[in-house]
Simulated assay, not measured.
Amino acid sequence: MPLKSKQPRIVPLEPPFDAEAADVLERLGPPIQLFRVWARRPDLARGVASWGRYYFSTQSALTVRQRELVIHRTTARCGADYEWGVHVAAFAEKAGFDEAQLGSLAAGSPSDACWDAADRAVLTAVDELRATADLSDETWAHLVAASGEDGALDVLLVCGWYHAISFTVRALRLPLEPGTTRPDSP
C-alpha cells in the first residue's frame, strides 16, 4: 500500500539532542526515525521504553522467532513498510528466516511449505486477529500448543502493539531507514 506523501508529518529530532532527548533515545535503542519522533515527547518515549522495549526484549514468553513472526506478519499486513524494514534488518537473521519465509511473511500464507506446524500456528493467529479481532477455538488451541498459554497471551499483545506501531509509522509517513527494504522486496 503506497503512502500518499513522502514527507514525514512530524519531523524526527536531529542531533545534537538535548539531555532529556538523549536520555530517552538511549533507553529506546538505536536512534531510528520513529524513536526520534517519540523523543519529541520524552514522557511518551520513557513509557514506551519502560514497557514495550523492555518487556518484548526481556520478559516475553515468546522465542525471538515467534515474536518476529508476529511482528513481520503484522507490519506486512498493515502495509507498514518502515517497521517491516527495521525488523528485517535487525531481527530476520536472528529469527532464522530465509528468503522464502520472508517472502511468505510479506505476501504468502501460513499454509506455505516453508512453515512448520508451530510457525503456522503463530501466523494463522496473526492473520485471524487481523481479519476478525478474535481467535477461533481451533486457532487458539493450535497457538497454545505451539507457544504455551503465556506465549499465546504474548502473541495477542505483540500483535496489538505492532498494529499500533504500524498505524503510527504509516500515518507519520516515515520513509525507510537506510539499508532497509519493503515487504515486497525482502
Results as ranks from 00 to 15, higher is better:
Pro30Glu: 15
Pro31Trp: 04
Pro31Ala: 08
Gln33Phe: 12
Phe35Met: 09
Arg36Asp: 03
Arg36Pro: 04
Val37Ile: 14
Trp38Arg: 06
Ala39Asn: 09
Arg41Thr: 05
Asp43Glu: 15
Ala45Pro: 10
Ala45Trp: 06
Arg46Cys: 03
Gly47Met: 13
Gly47Glu: 07
Val48Leu: 15
Ser50Asp: 15
Gly52Ser: 12
Gly52Met: 09
Arg53Ala: 05
Tyr55Phe: 11
Ser57Glu: 13
Thr58Asp: 14
Gln59Pro: 02
Gln59Thr: 02
Ser60Leu: 14
Ala61His: 07
Leu62Trp: 07
Thr63Phe: 02
Arg65Leu: 05
Arg65Thr: 05
Gln66Phe: 00
Arg67Leu: 08
Arg67Ala: 09
Val70Glu: 02
Arg73Ile: 01
Arg73Pro: 00
Thr74Ser: 02
Ala76Ser: 08
Ala76Lys: 05
Ala76Leu: 03
Arg77Gly: 00
Arg77Asp: 04
Cys78Asn: 05
Gly79Ile: 04
Asp81Ser: 08
Tyr82Gln: 05
Glu83Pro: 03
Trp84Thr: 03
Trp84Asp: 07
Gly85His: 05
Val86Glu: 05
Val86Ala: 09
Val88Ile: 15
Val88Lys: 12
Lys94Asp: 09
Lys94Gln: 14
Lys94Ile: 06
Phe97Ser: 12
Asp98His: 14
Asp98Asn: 15
Asp98Ile: 09
Asp98Tyr: 11
Asp98Ser: 13
Glu99Thr: 15
Ala100Met: 09
Gln101Phe: 11
Gly103His: 12
Gly103Glu: 14
Gly103Asn: 13
Gly103Val: 04
Gly103Ile: 05
Ser104Phe: 05
Ala106His: 13
Ala106Phe: 07
Gly108Ala: 07
Gly108Leu: 06
Ser109Pro: 02
Asp112Pro: 00
Asp112Thr: 07
Asp112Glu: 07
Asp112Asn: 12
Trp115Glu: 03
Asp116Met: 10
Ala117Met: 00
Ala117Ser: 11
Ala118Tyr: 00
Asp119Ala: 15
Asp119Gln: 08
Asp119Gly: 08
Arg120Ile: 00
Arg120Phe: 03
Ala125Phe: 01
Asp127Cys: 04
Glu128Gln: 07
Leu129Asn: 01
Leu129Ile: 10
Arg130Glu: 11
Ala131Met: 01
Asp134Gln: 09
Asp137Asn: 11
Glu138Gly: 12
Glu138Val: 12
Thr139Gln: 02
Ala141Gly: 14
Ala141Ile: 01
Val144Glu: 13
Ala145Asp: 14
Ala145Gln: 10
Ser147Val: 14
Gly148Val: 08
Glu149Cys: 01
Glu149Ser: 11
Gly151Trp: 05
Ala152Ser: 09
Leu153His: 04
Asp154Ser: 05
Val155Asp: 01
Trp161Asn: 14
Trp161Cys: 10
Trp161Gln: 12
Tyr162Ile: 02
Ile165Gly: 03
Ile165Glu: 08
Thr168Leu: 14
Val169Asn: 08
Arg170Cys: 10
Ala171Met: 14
Ala171Arg: 12
Leu172Glu: 02
